[in-house]
């Protein structure tokens, strides 16, 4: 299968391991990822809370390029995914905005590109095919799949049920992990609020970690660089702020899939976490 790949800015720096794991797992599963040529930032929260035109225009350039390449797009980052999906919708529904954007960029968008989250793309090859690639079943892993907000909301642009998403659980179940039904799988981690209102965001992160621990999780899987960064790298700050002692490894879901397929943990970026995931990984490798 051949599909356009929009990594997004974070996957070039703070979420490098997500990018690495995604490319390795995709190759292993026979999914050919073609980077969108010269892609640009989707604008993220900054654009949509400052200027509605930019919020549509920045993702639109990527959609135009993807269309020219004749490819649909898969997006690993939940935030980029939602921005691209919403821009696609604005372009389809608002003629004026669509015309202004295509004038500024100099090329039109015909609306042909279909935008998928990475979860959907991997699920698209079939759970049985995925299970067939598993050489190291994730049997010892009690994993809480964390979907956060933008993968599943608002309804209509999300890639799964907004209240009880299951796609990531199904992928990891195919890799023989034990997934958990837990209450905070779709609660917000605070996202970029952490950069301006850190204390408030730490509350949300604490709540998610606490709920996962209460549900019996030994690790959390996620599909968003900001979610991962908030839950992982801020655990120290959470522990300091609230006097807790969380030590919950936070994986990108393709890292776990890669592990199950027998790929090298280092190549999957498993040494790049703030909370050391070694114990969880060792439990898997037996």
């Amino acid at each position: 299968m051949k599909i356009g790949y929009y990594p997004g800015c974070s996957l070039q720096s703070s979420a490098k391991e997500y990018d690495r794991a995604t490319r390795l797992v995709a190759r292993h599963l026979g999914i050919q990822l073609h980077d969108i040529n010269d892609w640009n930032c989707c604008g993220a929260t900054a654009a949509h809370s400052m200027d509605h035109f930019l919020a549509a225009a920045l993702p639109a350039r990527n959609l135009i390029i993807a269309e020219e390449m004749g490819l649909d797009v898969t997006v690993p980052c939940a935030a980029c995914y939602q921005r691209l999906r919403l821009a696609h919708r604005v372009l389809a529904e608002n003629e004026e905005t669509a015309r202004d954007i295509s004038q500024l960029i100099g090329r039109p968008y015909k609306g042909k590109v279909r935008i998928y989250s990475l979860i959907e793309t991997i699920a698209g090859i079939g759970l049985e095919q995925l299970a067939a690639q598993v050489v190291r079943p994730l049997k010892e892993l009690r994993v809480a799949c964390y979907y956060g907000c933008l993968l599943v909301r608002p309804p209509g642009t999300g890639c799964d049920d907004p209240e009880n998403p299951r796609l990531m659980d199904e992928l990891l179940e195919a890799a023989k992990a034990e997934t958990l039904d837990w209450g905070y799988k779709n609660e917000c981690c605070g996202a970029s609020l952490v950069f301006s209102e850190r204390r408030l965001a730490l509350h949300l992160i604490r709540n998610i970690l606490r709920n996962a621990v209460d549900a019996g999780a030994t690790s959390i899987a996620c599909a968003c660089p900001l979610c991962q960064s908030n839950l992982d790298t801020r655990q120290g700050q959470v522990n300091k702020e609230f006097g807790t002692s969380f030590a919950m490894p936070i994986f990108y879901f393709p890292q776990l899939l890669g592990l199950a397929m027998g790929l090298n943990p280092q190549d999957l970026g498993l040494g790049m976490h703030f909370v050391d995931p070694q114990r969880a990984i060792k439990a898997v490798s037996g």
């Binding site: 039904d181 837990w182 209450g183 709920n211 209460d214 549900a215």
Partner: peptide
């Protein structure tokens, strides 16, 4: 807004 299972309790 939401009801979820937390152990034996419903939150």
């Amino acid at each position: 807004s939401k009801v979820y299972q937390d152990g034996s309790k419903l939150i």
